[in-house]
Simulated scan of single mutants.
Amino acid sequence: MKIESNIFLLPGAFFLLVAFIYGWLTDFSEMVGFPAILLTAGLALMVGIYFKMLERRHGARPEDRHDAEIEELSGDQGFYAPWSWWPLVLAAGAALSFVSLAVGWWLMVPAAIVGLVGLVGWVMEFSTGRFAH
């Protein structure tokens, strides 16, 4: 996780420096650029700090070591739901929400309901027993 954290920490520090230089050059009177660059720095630093915490918690992974072997990463990488229809319902909710931007804001309520049903269904799909649908 060292490489992943540096990918976000270094640009975060760069954007923090650039934000204050930009603010100093504009006398902190420009109300969009300085906060936008500052928020970009905050987002990058937040992700980088999270990856740094994961590095401390889990230690060095095989892909972080130079002496690692390929077979160290073999085995299950996680559980993925086969033949699930819930992502389709979630995608329908997302499509409805994007359509609501063009048609009207009133369509956002049914889109949120469909999206929430799809999200809860997908998350809770296997909570009633092994391979239950």
Rank of each mutant, 00 (worst) to 15 (best):
M31D: 07
W83D: 14
I113S: 09
A19K: 01
G75N: 10
V114Q: 08
E4D: 08
F131Q: 08
S127G: 00
A111I: 03
L17H: 00
L10R: 05
M1Y: 12
A91Y: 03
Y80C: 01
L107N: 00
F8Y: 12
G78R: 09
D27H: 12
V47Y: 11
F14Y: 14
V120C: 04
V103R: 04
I49E: 06
M31I: 01
V117A: 14
E72C: 09
A94F: 13
E69Y: 05
R56Q: 14
A102N: 00
A132C: 01
E72T: 07
S29M: 10
E125S: 14
P87V: 09
A41W: 03
S127R: 15
F20N: 10
N6A: 07
L96Y: 08
V99W: 12
E63H: 07
R57V: 04
W85R: 13
V123N: 08
R56N: 15
E71I: 05
F131M: 03
L10I: 15
G115H: 03
D76K: 11
A132G: 04
N6C: 07
V117F: 11
L88C: 00
A91D: 00
G115T: 10
I70F: 13
I21A: 12
Y22S: 14
A132Q: 13
F98C: 05
F126D: 10
G42E: 02
W86Q: 09
I3C: 04
R57T: 12
S97G: 10
V120R: 08
T26E: 10
L54N: 14
D76R: 12
M1R: 09
L25E: 13
F8A: 07
P35F: 06
G115D: 06
G129A: 15
M124F: 12
H66W: 13
A102M: 10
F126P: 02
H133V: 06
S29Y: 05
F131L: 11
L45S: 09
G12T: 11
M46V: 03
L43K: 00
W86E: 05
F131H: 14
A41Y: 00
W122D: 10
V47E: 04
L16K: 02
I7W: 06
L45E: 01
L25C: 02
G129S: 07
G115I: 00
L25K: 12
N6F: 08
L39N: 03
F98A: 14
L17F: 15
W24I: 09
R130V: 07
G118C: 08
I7R: 10
L88M: 04
V18T: 13
G59C: 04
A102V: 14
T128A: 15
F15K: 04
V18C: 06
W85G: 12
L116T: 15
V117R: 02
V120F: 06
W106K: 02
L54H: 04
A91C: 11
G42F: 12
A13E: 05
F14H: 01
L73V: 11
I37S: 04
F79P: 03
A68R: 11
N6T: 07
T128K: 15
A112P: 10
V114R: 03
L25I: 09
P87Q: 10
E71R: 05
W83F: 14
H133N: 10
W85P: 13
F51C: 05
Y50V: 06
P11E: 03
E30P: 02
A132R: 13
Y50D: 01
V89P: 12
F28C: 09
